[in-house]
């Protein structure tokens, strides 16, 4: 087992021993289920309306009415929930003085940062995998196109990975977990609002550049079923940047 794998195994163990994963997981799945129920109910109501107006069987698009809305709504849920998952990663080590032990162990800082990120990402993947129960059940009762759902899931995974990397970075900044959660929450909301700023500029070069920095338009394209390389590059580079900054912050503690 390599040092990175050792870090991942230890972090996963830490997550499952503490109540965090269970609480966050329960809330995440509850909200996902509740939102699905609401959107399905809403789609049903629309179908009934259409049938009354047109007569006969109404054709409604579940992809548009349920899944796109569902994935879009999950953005705010992720903004609130993911910082809670990541807040302990570095802050707790500092608080419990195990940080000094990690830093004096013969492993590279990259191994520590990557190990911690991968562990929380695996947990997130597990939670996302559980949500596929919703489309699987719906499949029994209706017809819809799976492809936009897969891109939606891809979007949710990429967005989650980006959020988690921001959370890991925030956790490295402080030894207080509450502060870490709040800083990542603040950063995620700010990046969200950058999209609004971009909209103010409209369809100008400045507007497009500003909008590019927000995850909103990249995520939206994936929800529409569009896999664009520029979006993948956006998520990949954002993730790499945050992990790099985390590395620098961890490294800088040596020089303080």
């Amino acid at each position: 087992m390599t040092p990175v794998q050792a870090v991942i195994a230890k972090e996963l163990r830490g997550y499952f021993v503490s109540p965090i994963v269970y609480v966050v997981g329960a809330v995440f799945l509850l909200i996902f289920g509740l939102l699905s129920y609401l959107y399905v109910g809403f789609a049903g109501a629309q179908a009934i309306q259409l049938m009354q107006m047109q007569g006969g069987m109404a054709q409604i698009n579940l992809n548009d009415l349920v899944f796109r809305n569902l994935f879009a709504s999950m953005r705010i849920v992720l903004v609130i929930i993911l910082p809670i998952l990541t807040m302990r990663l570095f802050a707790e080590e500092r608080k419990l003085r195990t940080f000094e032990f990690l830093m004096t162990s013969p492993i590279r800082i990259t191994d520590i940062v990557v190990g911690k990120f991968v562990s929380v990402f695996l947990i997130y993947l597990g939670l996302v995998a559980l949500t596929t129960l919703v489309p699987t059940v719906l499949m029994l009762f209706s017809d819809f196109d799976w492809n936009p759902i897969w891109t939606g899931y891809l979007g949710m995974v990429l967005l989650g990975a980006l959020f988690l990397s921001v959370g890991v970075f925030a956790s490295a900044l402080t030894e207080n977990q509450i502060v870490a959660a709040f800083v990542s929450f603040g950063m995620l909301l700010t990046i969200w609002l950058i999209a609004g700023l971009g909209n103010l500029f409209g369809d100008t070069t400045a507007g497009r550049i500003i909008s590019y920095f927000s995850y909103m338009e990249h995520y939206d394209r994936l929800l529409r079923g569009l896999i664009d390389t520029s979006d993948l590059v956006y998520f990949g580079s954002g993730l790499a940047l945050m992990l790099f900054l985390t590395h620098r912050v961890v490294e800088s503690t040596r020089w303080k």
Partner: peptide
């Protein structure tokens, strides 16, 4: 401070 992880 002994660098131990309480959850292990």
């Amino acid at each position: 401070t002994p660098p131990v992880y309480q959850e292990l």
